[in-house]
Design a protein around this nucleic acid. Structure first.
Lengths: 370, 370
DNA sequence: GAGCAAAGTGAACACGTTTTCAAAACGTGT
DNA sequence: ACACGTTTTGAAAACGTGTTCACTTTGCTC
């Protein structure tokens, strides 16, 4: 035995190789089929298989049918990672979301995912911390996955951080808000180029203010959203202008952060420290819920008899009987399809000038006003 | 000119090549940096760059530092698509979710995304239709993205459909539920091999039943979850056995589907058609909200005075003052870390025998019982 | 049936990584 | 100076696909 060590070694090497190849084959069976295998089984070249899966490529109809049938049998699908490598399209849409469990955000993520899925894209979800420095790391982390486009729900991302992505040709969409049909927020950074989805909140908020004024409300308070949020600021400015137009006194502002808890606390403050109000306008529905619960369960004030409440967004919970909230609706479906339209257009024409879409708002009247 | 056609051709070819290279360079500036560029700029081979980004690879410390600094300057990150092609790890975790905006699901997606992100994975989100045939298409669609693992929130996926994925070596985790500390659901398909996360709901539900019994409730109704849901079935069976143990009459069952709307409707039916109850146990919190609103706002029954209500999950909204729901809590943090542990273990040892983790439940007492 | 445009075909290359493997550099003890 | 074990190194080969470019076939018109 030891005398034939050299030969044995070689033999063992071969055996090892064979074993390796066997285990490779065993692995192949449980692993995904490749275009090569489909090609072999259908008696065509590998290129033909590729073409069979790209409808615009030219290939004889019967050949394509045969390939597709073999592919189906083998449960073959082109590997998107490999495909992305050459086409430079990952078909991944990144979403940066602070809190998925926040009703509004989850609703939006849900609708967007449906719409994008229908167009052949998949949602790549990332959570952000409120911490800023963290965000930069998150962005480069995310970039490693090569998303075709990024939708940022965070309002606090600094433009210079975002511009890293524009260098790498990834369009970013943020939720900007229009004050009225005309003027875009001056705060929107102009040196960075990206497409925007604007929400025209003038009409819906105007209806809300008109309704409140019609009930004789004059002391209208505003529960603000998170600090430094552009959405927040735009809503506040719009409310201010709408009330001035109707010769109503300027709104009392109490600080919120879009959360139930802060909406609750702000309302307590409003009535204990700042003289109260006969109507409350909340920056979003969730903080309106907080306001409602504070009024009813802690301050003992009836809604809508003593105080009237209006929210913003019209999330599903606003329709629940316990809240039954009158609110300014942003139509999610309309909003999402505009966003998808924007993304698709940008992907098909990366060098086109900046685009924007606009969606409207309207008041949904329920029980918290009268 | 025409005399030198051959030469010109070659020259043109060269020029073309140069132009191409120029436009390539221009594109390169706006496109992502590659390992090649980093290598050139740092005077090392491309392999060294690869090694610099894989901590366990051996590389001289100063060399690694220099590479990393150049990489930072160029804003370079290894392309995960290319990396996935050879390592066979996409670092993508697929999640199949019916409704992201459902509070419980969104909460779970949120927590999972955080935990996975911390481990270097990203969440790939897919929405499913209730339609079955659709699901199969969804699964092959999803498989194209090569997720390392799949977490399915759907309860209705047929095992034979899922097994396609096991062929391609992708572990799947579904939310199974244990009736008590011991026996696993018999309905769990045994021919298909996958890891499970079990929820031991015995303890929490026992506390709930004890509390209700302590208040003298005997006519306990149960609002069920979606049909064919294993989670639903396990909860029902557990409730049945717990009540029998305490010599309570069997619960009246009204059909729900985990939704607010159906919880509302089922409660109306319960009192208008099926003789009512002095306590309601809902299959999840959201339908408990529906029950509460039906009792208070349509049936005019006080909670907890006339009827006591218990939910299941402890989603954030259960803490809101308008509902203030007593409920059986599944600790999301504990649950998610168990799930992540399961996934990581499976990925590091693909051929290990089936594993399972278990998390407990406990009652959270709030205002809807007393 | 010749002529010709259009459509179909496949070899070779590219995409950006990791992994293997043999060679080179390095340090340490005699 | 030598031998020897350890770490470091880079060329070449994957990974699974799309795309280009000449080449071949098909279909149509006169």
């Amino acid at each position: 035995m030891d005398g034939f060590a050299g030969v044995m070694d070689e033999h063992d090497y071969n055996r090892d190789w064979k074993v390796l190849s066997l285990s490779d084959e065993a692995e192949a069976r449980r692993s995904r089929a490749t275009a090569e295998m489909v090609a072999k089984l259908a008696n065509v070249s590998r290129v033909a298989v590729s073409r069979a899966f790209n409808p615009e490529a030219s290939l004889r109809a019967d050949k394509r049918a045969r390939i597709l049938s073999v592919a189906r049998e083998l449960n073959y699908t082109p590997d998107r990672a490999a495909r992305a490598l050459v086409t430079r399209r990952s078909h991944l849409i990144g979403m940066i979301v602070p809190d998925v469990f926040s009703p509004w955000e989850s609703q939006e993520v849900d609708a967007l995912t449906s719409a994008l899925q229908a167009e052949g894209f998949a949602t790549l979800l990332f959570k952000t911390r409120t911490d800023m420095s963290m965000d930069e790391r998150l962005l480069t982390y995310m970039r490693g996955f090569n998303p075709d486009s990024v939708i940022a729900f965070t309002e606090n991302v600094r433009p210079e951080v975002l511009s890293q992505f524009l260098d790498s040709c990834v369009p970013i969409y943020i939720n900007y808000l229009l004050e009225d049909g005309g003027a875009v927020e001056a705060e929107a950074p102009t040196d960075v180029l990206y497409d925007r989805l604007d929400v025209n909140q003038w009409q819906g908020m105007d209806q809300a203010v008109a309704l409140l004024a019609g009930y004789g409300c004059r002391r209208i308070a505003y529960i603000s959203g998170k600090k430094n949020s552009l959405a927040e600021f735009a809503r506040y400015r719009t409310l201010q202008r709408l009330m001035a137009r109707r010769k109503l006194p300027a709104p009392t502002v109490v600080q919120g952060d879009f959360s139930y808890r802060q909406g609750y606390a702000a309302t307590i403050d409003l009535f204990r420290l700042h003289g109260g109000a006969d109507a409350i306008f909340a920056a979003n529905d969730e903080s309106a819920f907080g306001a409602l619960d504070a009024l009813r369960h802690e301050l003992g004030l009836g809604v809508p008899d003593a105080v009237r409440v209006v929210g913003f967004d019209d999330i599903v919970q606003s329709g629940w009987k316990s809240y039954d909230l009158t609110t300014v609706r942003i139509d999610v479906h309309e909003r999402v399809s505009a966003l998808v339209r924007l993304i698709l257009r940008r992907l098909s024409a990366p060098d086109a000038p900046t685009m924007s879409e606009q969606v409207g708002t309207k008041l949904v009247v329920r029980g918290t006003v009268g």
